[in-house]
Simulated scan of single mutants.
Amino acid sequence: MDTAELYIGLMSGTSLDAVDAVLLELPPSGNASPRLGHHYSLPYSTSLRSELLQLHKPSDNELERSLLIGNTLSRLYAETVAGLLESAALPPSAIRAIGCHGQTIRHRPELGYTLQLVNSALLAEQCDITVVADFRSRDIAAGGQGAPLVPAFHHAMFGSTLEHRVILNIGGIANLSNLPLQGEVTGWDSGPGNMLMDAWIMQQQGLTYDQHGAWAETGQIIPDLLASLLALPYFGASPPKSCGRDQFHMDWLQQQLIPGSNPADVQRTLLELSAISITDAITGYCGAVDAVYLCGGGAYNTALARRLQQLLGTVRIETTAALGIAPEWVEAAAFAWLARQTMHRSTGNLPAVTGARGPRVLGAIYYN
């Protein structure tokens, strides 16, 4: 019988809000379901978030600044791992490996590259644990998008023989995994999730996010602005596809804004943009779906969830808590699972999702 192994997953997503860590118990062969253990999170400081946002576009001395911030992030990742191990009362030697996504600051698969900041060697040194990182590059080298990488985990964790499920992760970017009863798993980035709403409320009110979508609900949709935003060719492109801040950023939004618009109306329009692009992705490419399960921070945006329910009609909408994992821990758990795949020389990508030429073992290993 296989002996279960413990992996830690680390995730810091496009929302730039925190580092999330989870402990996942995984059988080496993959013949049993993963089991979530302890979890831990540390927030980003305002200064770190600001520095990372500045690096998303060309700037002075960005090479050195990126490397230095990579070191800062790695120390924060290590601190998060230490907090997780303390809460679980486990020594570093109990962990087979850490799966670390790193912080994305560029994602340009059409140019053949992606960049996630982390000093993996430093992280391995500080944690005294083997680290697996750089998950996206091999898929891109094989002609894929390098993203999303979570659908394989979603299938392993949430696949069902009873209902056709879509797992919808609403982070800064929204991505979905289509888990049909028959046929292959598919998945892609539908477009912005929280990213534009977070950026707009930060500019207007100095807040990092619109809690429950409450501010958006005070506004009205601006039809011309919504039409202008939806005209971006990305929305009409067929999957496989992936996106990030390279497409959806404040400069792009400012170019579309109608002078004199009420700020709350802009926020409501941005919520509608997320809702419509997500709905179009599901109804256009997923077939007859029984249920949509929300994860990521956007799962707690009740205004967005209500709007999705209105648009999707009879499709049941719940969060992944109904499937055993709270929404905020799903992505970190996915990278623990991906680390297990790497350590056992098992493939981690799904070519139907990323468009790669075939299945590939992902990630670079920094052995302890």
Rank of each mutant, 00 (worst) to 15 (best):
E5L: 14
I8F: 07
G13E: 09
V22K: 09
N31E: 14
P34E: 06
H38K: 10
H56K: 15
S59H: 09
L63K: 04
L68S: 13
T80S: 05
L84E: 09
P91V: 02
A97K: 06
G112H: 13
G112D: 13
T114M: 03
Q126A: 12
V131M: 13
V131I: 12
G159P: 09
T161V: 07
E163T: 14
E163D: 12
V166M: 04
I170Y: 01
G171Y: 01
N175R: 04
L179M: 05
Y209R: 11
H212M: 04
W215I: 13
A216Y: 07
P223A: 06
L225N: 08
L225Q: 07
L232S: 14
Y234F: 15
S238T: 13
K241C: 02
W252P: 00
Q254Y: 00
P263T: 10
Q267E: 14
L270W: 06
Y285T: 14
A288R: 12
V289W: 10
L294Q: 06
L311V: 01
T319F: 04
A322D: 09
A326Q: 12
E331Q: 07
A334R: 02
W337P: 01
G348K: 03
A352M: 08
A352P: 00
A356V: 06
R357D: 13
I365S: 04
Y367W: 09
N368Y: 02
N368F: 00
